[in-house]
């Protein structure tokens, strides 16, 4: 049988999916054991025990100075920034993307401008944001918005433009105004794509968040990682990175479920 015709069964799929994770884990454990055998004080690849102890300290022991549980306060601070940024970016993308996608006049005016803005490297603007907006929350949220909104907007506009022209004309023959075409024909059909687009932007959003926190913050997941970096505390950094990844994966999954729940028609294949 040709390789292209071999499909794994249910059990086989789970096994195959688990394989890379298992290999990565084993590789880490071997590497860590080898380095620790050579030098028990090695900090680069800490043992699972060491990481477990630090998780205990960060997540379940109140901080001696402030009395906070650091992992949770960091998570709360970071998620608040991330979600605010993503929410604002989504609203901007919805308004500008729809305008752009539905109205030729708006497209003529905004299209080139948004295409230009989306090419500005957001991280290069970070110093400007810190100087203009201060070192508080606003500048960090603004960085996420500037990084994510133009791409969401363009993607939404492209999806709207790609809708068959026939549908728009059809809606007009059903007495739709411009507003009703946007509201009842275009908007519902671009929403699934917007959710997918948002899923793809979770990675960049975290990148901007951590970059901003690394430079100036009083708390947050990125802040903590860059703080303990000074002490080579891999036993904190690794669990934090894993935690951030888990958060992103969970958000991705939730968005996927949301899409399936809200837009069942998008899952129907002829």
């Amino acid at each position: 049988m040709r390789l292209i015709n071999m499909h794994p069964g249910r059990g086989g799929r789970v096994l195959l999916a688990a394989l890379p994770f298992v290999i990565l884990g084993i590789a880490y454990l071997i590497g860590s054991a080898l380095r620790l055998a050579e030098n028990p004080g090695d900090k680069l690849l800490p043992s699972l025990d060491a990481m477990g102890r630090m998780i205990e300290v960060m997540a379940f022991t109140p901080d001696r100075r402030t009395g906070d549980y650091l992992l949770w306060t960091d998570t709360a601070a970071s998620l608040l920034r991330l979600w605010s940024g993503l929410a604002i970016a989504t609203v901007i993308a919805l308004v500008l993307g729809l305008l752009n996608g539905v109205l030729p006049v708006a497209r003529a005016m905004l299209g080139p401008f948004i295409a230009f803005l989306s090419m500005v490297p957001p991280l290069a603007l970070l110093p400007v944001l810190f100087i203009v907006l201060g070192l508080g929350e606003v500048s960090k949220i603004a960085l996420i918005v500037i990084g994510v909104a133009p791409i969401l907007t363009r993607d939404l506009a492209l999806t709207a433009i790609a809708l068959p022209r026939e549908q728009i004309v059809k809606a007009e023959t059903l007495s739709a105004s411009s507003w009703l075409v946007a509201w009842r024909v275009v908007l519902p059909q671009v929403m699934p794509r917007l959710i997918d687009s948002l899923r793809l932007q979770l990675g960049p959003a975290f990148l901007f968040l951590i970059a901003a926190e690394a430079i100036s913050a009083e708390g947050g997941l990125g802040y903590r990682i860059f703080l303990v970096r000074r002490y080579l505390s891999m036993d904190i950094i690794f669990p934090y990175v894993l935690w951030i990844t888990l958060l992103a994966v969970t958000m991705d999954l939730c968005l996927r479920l949301l899409r399936r729940r809200l837009y069942p028609w998008a899952e129907v294949r002829p």
Partner: peptide
């Protein structure tokens, strides 16, 4: 004036 095209005449959503 109503219209029916060969394709895309109904709304998939």
């Amino acid at each position: 004036r109503g219209v029916v095209y060969q394709r895309y005449s109904v709304f998939p959503h």
